[in-house]
Design a protein around this nucleic acid. Structure first.
Lengths: 334, 334
DNA sequence: GGCCCTATCTGCAACGATGGATTCGAACGT
DNA sequence: ACGTTCGAATCCATCGTTGCAGATAGGGCC
């Protein structure tokens, strides 16, 4: 049915191995022979069977990418960047959605599906460092951005704490003193929520503003989570003059709820987010946020993973410099 | 290095084939034997090598999905749905971004990468039916939603024309008479732009409103495309009392530009879109749009493709009923 | 001229699984 | 009692490539 190397070899009057050599750019082939093989390939419409190649060579040229859900804009945009970066280096990306559930994350780390990839990019949300190390197989693994550090794991970090502090400082500079935080729990330590909350507190402390736990509202990191949390906050009667969503979706949900309730943004209440997804630029009012260096993270993570795959030396996790972040001041918090 | 079936067989004291039989749930195996094999698998941490299985069985259990770019919310949400539908049926999805370029689409249809998948889901944007038929290989192929019909191809359609007509009719019912259209070219016929434009014209005609080509503004189907087009429209001095973005991104870009320019939405100018992406619900004002039945499309397309893969009969493209659409009336065009 | 080297091409054996035929008893029917 | 059937496990070939080791033939060197 399918055309194989054997068919090409027969058509070109050479051995199967020579066809293989041509395809793999083996150095010592007479130009005439090479041309004959290429012609035969063309004529028969031969295509390499990547499955067979993988089995024999032990490489799949695919990277796994585990994230919560593609319908979340930040992950979708990050996935897009990662796919482009991988593609440019001759790798494809197999995406797996964990739905933010520990079971799925664990399954993705161990699962059969790993035998289809040469390495894994992982955005952990439910698992902590210990669990990841326990569950991880022996193939290269690079963690992305959203996590606490651990010297035993390779990871590409964003400046969660510093960037969150920058946002908070910006809000403080605008005269805000009662800044609500959406998406964290008072006491969170690990994970991006913990780190961003820490940044918030550090900025408050630096400005001599007292930290008030009643301003910290836990919720899902999604638009409706942000809207609900804001509604609860308004209903509870807690006073606040700014909202910091720990990601843009939260901030946009909050923004929506505030406007629905007739609050003026930013005059009465300022709103800021974290991520700088494309949508934020076009919100009304446009959303002040911080860009964590998404493109850079994607590039670095892919680069690091491929390096681990291709060089056999299992070097211990090198401390990567963190990606540069950039505050984007827009209308919602000028 | 990796544990193979052979190792398991040795450990369990059975033949390699018996291990294979256990894994594939072969009916006639003594419970005791089965248990011994399972124990051995567990103990050795054996994992099936999917590459080898694919080579031998000729099936990869992967579906290809070609779309323009995951950073576009509609595609990201669709991809998410598709992956879930495929997953539920035991298939994985390998996403490929075409960037909306004919070359890339063609490459995706023919490329080596197809040897990694059992079939392809394809959202064509740059290629027309002829080109697709010419480029397509012999593996199953199902086209998604955004395209004109062709009896030679399998496809799952959305009601482009009807849904666009419904949006237009809604705007007309609100008293709007000068409805600008973003994202089409006067004269477009094929593709979703053509079909949606046709729906718009049909609705105008039904209401006895004259069609004015100066209200039709071509642009990229992205937020900034919509914003730019709106800016041009405003600058040109053409009068209009509503904007219909042929997708939500366009409408959201338009909404943003209108608000920046101080126009009242919806009092002065109503805005409506097409797709009902999650973001639209949370825009301010929230966006009136039409949901084309995304979940249904995803489900149907996956189902159809898998059916084609698993039943060898190459039945000619059955005319699928189109997915049901639903108008979502919100603040931007009440 | 004999020897080694280099360029060019070939053959064999894997990679790790599955399909199909086959073997070997034990149970069954008459 | 003996052929038949059926459950349970085994054996062999095979999927389409690539790695590694040959094989062959000119050419240059001494």
């Amino acid at each position: 049915m399918a055309v194989t190397m054997n068919d090409v070899a027969r058509a070109a009057g050479v051995s199967l191995k020579t066809v293989s050599n041509v395809i793999n750019n083996y150095e010592f082939i007479r130009p005439a022979t090479k041309q004959r093989v290429l012609d035969a390939i063309d004529e028969l419409g031969y295509e390499t069977n990547l499955t067979a190649r993988s089995l024999r060579s032990g490489k799949t040229s695919m990277l796994g990418l585990v994230l919560a859900d593609l319908s979340i804009p930040y992950y979708a945009e990050l996935a897009s960047d990662i796919m482009k970066a991988a593609w440019a280096r001759g790798y494809r990306v197999l995406v797996e959605q964990s739905g933010n559930e520990a079971e799925h994350e664990k399954a993705a780390l161990q699962g059969q599906f790993r035998s289809l990839t040469d390495g894994l990019l992982f955005i952990p949300l439910a698992l902590d460092a210990e669990q990841i190390i326990a569950a991880a197989g022996k193939k290269p693994l690079v963690l992305l951005g959203e996590f606490v550090q651990d010297p035993r794991l390779d990871m590409v970090l964003i400046q969660n704490q510093e960037a969150a502090a920058a946002v908070t400082t910006h809000l403080l500079a605008g005269g805000r003193r009662r800044i609500a935080v959406l998406g964290a729990h008072d006491g969170d330590e690990a994970g991006s929520n913990g780190l961003r909350l820490r940044g918030y507190r550090a900025a408050l402390a630096a400005a001599g503003v007292e930290y008030d736990p009643t301003l910290v509202v836990p919720c899902d990191w999604r638009r409706d989570g942000g809207a609900d949390a804001t509604a609860r906050l308004l209903d509870s009667g807690v006073e606040f003059d700014a909202v910091f969503g720990l990601n843009d979706a939260l901030a946009l949900g909050a923004l929506h709820e505030l406007l629905v309730r007739g609050r003026n943004v930013p005059e009465e209440i300022a709103v800021a987010g974290f991520d700088d997804i494309d949508e934020s630029r076009f919100a009304s009012p446009s959303l002040t946020t911080v860009a964590p260096g998404r493109a850079e993270i994607a590039e670095r993570a892919v680069e690091l993973l491929i390096q681990r795959i291709e060089s056999k030396d299992a070097a211990p996790a090198v401390q990567q410099p963190k990606a540069a972040f950039e505050l984007r001041v827009r209308q919602s918090a000028p």
